[in-house]
Simulated assay, not measured.
Amino acid sequence: MSYAIIGFGEIGQALAKAFARSGIEVSVATTRDPESFASAAAAIGPGIIPKTLAQAVKADIVFLAVRYESHRDVAKALPTWKGKIIIDVTNAYGVSPEELGGQPSSKVVAQAFTGARLVRGFNHLAAAVLDQDPAVHGGRRVVFLASDDDGAAAEIAALAENLGFSPIRLGGLSEGGLLVQARGNSWGQLIFKDLVKFD
């Protein structure tokens, strides 16, 4: 299984650190030349591989850690995303419900990535919290996952555990997924909730 993070801002770098802590190799890409962020990637760890967008999207599982407004530009990188899982880490805060056609933002993102299996996840924590080791006070930091594809959600839950997190599945994008979606100028009820699960 190969992994990529598209977007290398604060959230993208926090995700890369989770991969580095777990010793799992991951490609990182932006729309910029990989050399422009190679030193930042190297500072995180040797398994963080800077690539072009065209190279990175060949991965099986792709974290979409760009601004919501940029998701369509990334989607154009491939004619079809069949066989891939996209993890939607975007937040459409400030985007009107009308602009989203009354749908959760993840449904709009899913439509752009033709053929992909989409999981909403890793988006509810602020970058500064996501950046930290998820092993806290003898427990594990929670990440919420929502998807209309149970198989994809199960795969990403397993990955979240491998990265040291405790995944909690919220069901479909239009049900539990709304708890981790921004609507207009309001945040979903679970956004920014920093929870720890004790086994």
Rank of each mutant, 00 (worst) to 15 (best):
D73H: 12
T52S: 15
A59I: 00
A158D: 15
S147V: 08
L145R: 11
V136G: 02
I85K: 04
S70T: 13
S106V: 07
V136F: 10
F63M: 11
G151Y: 09
T52V: 13
S105P: 08
P134M: 12
D150C: 04
A153T: 03
A160F: 07
G47L: 08
E155P: 08
T114P: 05
A75H: 03
L125W: 09
N123G: 13
L130Y: 07
E99R: 14
R117T: 10
I48K: 01
R141I: 09
Q132P: 09
P167M: 09
A116F: 04
D88V: 04
A128Q: 15
L53H: 04
K107G: 05
P134L: 04
L163Y: 11
G121Q: 04
D150H: 00
L125Y: 06
P50V: 10
Y68I: 11
A56T: 12
N162M: 14
A116P: 03
G164D: 08
A128C: 13
A154R: 13
S147D: 10
G83W: 09
F144P: 02
V142T: 12
D149N: 11
A135M: 11
G83A: 02
V95K: 09
P79L: 12
E161T: 14
V129L: 14
L125K: 07
T52C: 07
A116W: 06
Q55R: 12
R141P: 08
I156M: 02
G47T: 09
V89T: 10
S70V: 14
E99I: 10
A77G: 08
L125P: 00
T80Y: 11
D149Q: 04
K58G: 15
W81I: 07
G151C: 10
A154M: 01
A116D: 01
D148V: 01
N123Y: 08
D73I: 12
I49W: 00
S106E: 06
S106D: 06
V66T: 14
H124K: 00
G83T: 08
V109F: 05
A112T: 07
S105K: 01
A128F: 14
I86E: 00
I86S: 01
A154Q: 13
R140A: 10
H137V: 12
V143Y: 02
G164M: 06
A65F: 06
G139P: 04
Q132L: 15
E98Q: 14
A77K: 09
A59C: 06
A112K: 04
F165G: 06
A110Y: 07
E99W: 07
D131I: 11
A160I: 05
Q55E: 15
N123W: 06
P50I: 07
E155H: 05
G151A: 15
G139N: 03
A75M: 10
V136Q: 05
K107Q: 14
A75W: 07
F113A: 01
Y68N: 09
E69M: 12
G101H: 10
Y68R: 00
F122I: 12
N91Q: 09
E155L: 11
R169L: 13
Y93P: 02
L100Y: 08
L118Q: 03
L130I: 13
